[in-house]
Amino acid sequence: MGELVDFFLRSRHFILFVLLEVLCFYFIINTSNYWSATYFNTSNRYAAQVLAWSNAANEYANLRKVNADLALENQRLNAQLTKALQSRPEAPAEYRADSAFADRFKFTVAKVVDNTTQFANNYITIDKGSDDGIRPGMGVISPTGVVGKVRVCNHHFSVITSILHSEYLVSSQLVKANEIGTAKWDGSDPRFIKLLDISRYKPVSKGDSVVTSGHNSTFPPGILIGRVLSVAPMPNQTFHDITLNLATNFSNLSFVYVVENRLQAEQEQLEKQVDNEK
């Protein structure tokens, strides 16, 4: 307390000067319309700027919650869209999918906690595991396209084999050309992927969308994989050399959706039974 008193005694002249300046400033503002208006406008401008900075800081602090809410909303919309597509497939008008088939896909939102893109075989770790109903073999998509397939799980985490893996294949379909092929990463650039097994005698257009085909039990049909970037004939072969721009940007992957096909085990069991009888 004594040191505080000593400080005021030592600084009494400066403190008096500051008080007199504030008093003069007060009298100037209150006795002059011009300076009063100037002060009012200036203070409002700076107050508005400070308020804008405060709002921007609050919005930035809430981005994590906003992103999580958007991911949950996308999960709901994905389920509704997939159900609608499964209920109305490209088939004769008299065909109608039964309710179990239309509702066979379920989506679970998860956050990416680790992700590699620089290796020949890349993996992704998410914060959902067996306690959340995740199992090996389930497909994984992003809000923009295909991501990969669940490889292993524990109670709270799962590791996904990324589509950026040299041995991972995805049954694919060219939308305009209506041709079935296989998407496979060549291990070079994480922005691009190859589309294999498309006959060079089939017309392929740059910009054509490539989506998951109905010839797999992992993904719903129609999930975007990429768009055709370039088309060229493969030397000494009867196939196109097709490069796609990947729809999913793996460099900033934050949220993904794990796809459960409720009828997958039933389908694969039947197909395996047929293969064993051959």
Rank of each mutant, 00 (worst) to 15 (best):
1 M>R: 15
1 M>G: 15
2 G>V: 15
3 E>Q: 06
6 D>P: 05
7 F>Y: 13
9 L>M: 10
13 H>M: 12
15 I>S: 06
20 L>T: 11
20 L>M: 10
22 V>P: 01
26 Y>Q: 15
30 N>S: 10
30 N>V: 13
37 A>K: 06
37 A>W: 08
40 F>G: 07
41 N>G: 05
41 N>R: 10
42 T>D: 08
42 T>I: 12
44 N>E: 08
45 R>M: 10
46 Y>R: 13
46 Y>N: 08
56 A>W: 11
57 A>Q: 05
58 N>M: 10
65 K>R: 12
70 L>F: 11
74 N>K: 09
76 R>Q: 10
77 L>H: 13
78 N>G: 11
79 A>P: 10
80 Q>M: 15
85 L>G: 14
88 R>P: 01
88 R>N: 07
90 E>K: 11
93 A>I: 15
98 D>C: 12
99 S>G: 08
100 A>Q: 03
103 D>K: 07
103 D>E: 15
107 F>I: 05
113 V>W: 02
116 T>N: 02
118 Q>H: 07
118 Q>T: 03
121 N>D: 04
125 T>E: 01
127 D>F: 00
130 S>H: 00
134 I>A: 00
142 S>Y: 04
145 G>F: 01
147 V>R: 06
152 V>H: 01
156 H>M: 02
165 H>V: 04
165 H>M: 09
166 S>W: 08
170 V>L: 02
171 S>R: 12
173 Q>D: 09
173 Q>I: 14
174 L>M: 02
177 A>I: 05
178 N>T: 14
178 N>I: 09
180 I>A: 01
180 I>M: 02
181 G>F: 00
184 K>Q: 09
185 W>K: 05
186 D>A: 07
189 D>C: 05
194 K>I: 01
194 K>D: 00
195 L>C: 01
201 Y>I: 14
202 K>C: 08
202 K>E: 13
202 K>T: 13
206 K>W: 06
210 V>R: 04
215 H>K: 13
215 H>P: 07
216 N>Q: 15
217 S>A: 11
218 T>F: 11
218 T>E: 14
220 P>H: 10
220 P>S: 06
228 V>P: 04
232 A>T: 03
236 N>T: 03
237 Q>W: 00
245 N>E: 10
249 N>E: 08
249 N>Y: 04
255 F>Y: 14
257 Y>D: 12
261 N>C: 02
263 L>P: 03
265 A>S: 09
267 Q>D: 04
267 Q>T: 09
268 E>L: 14
271 E>R: 11
272 K>D: 12
277 E>P: 06
277 E>I: 14
277 E>R: 14
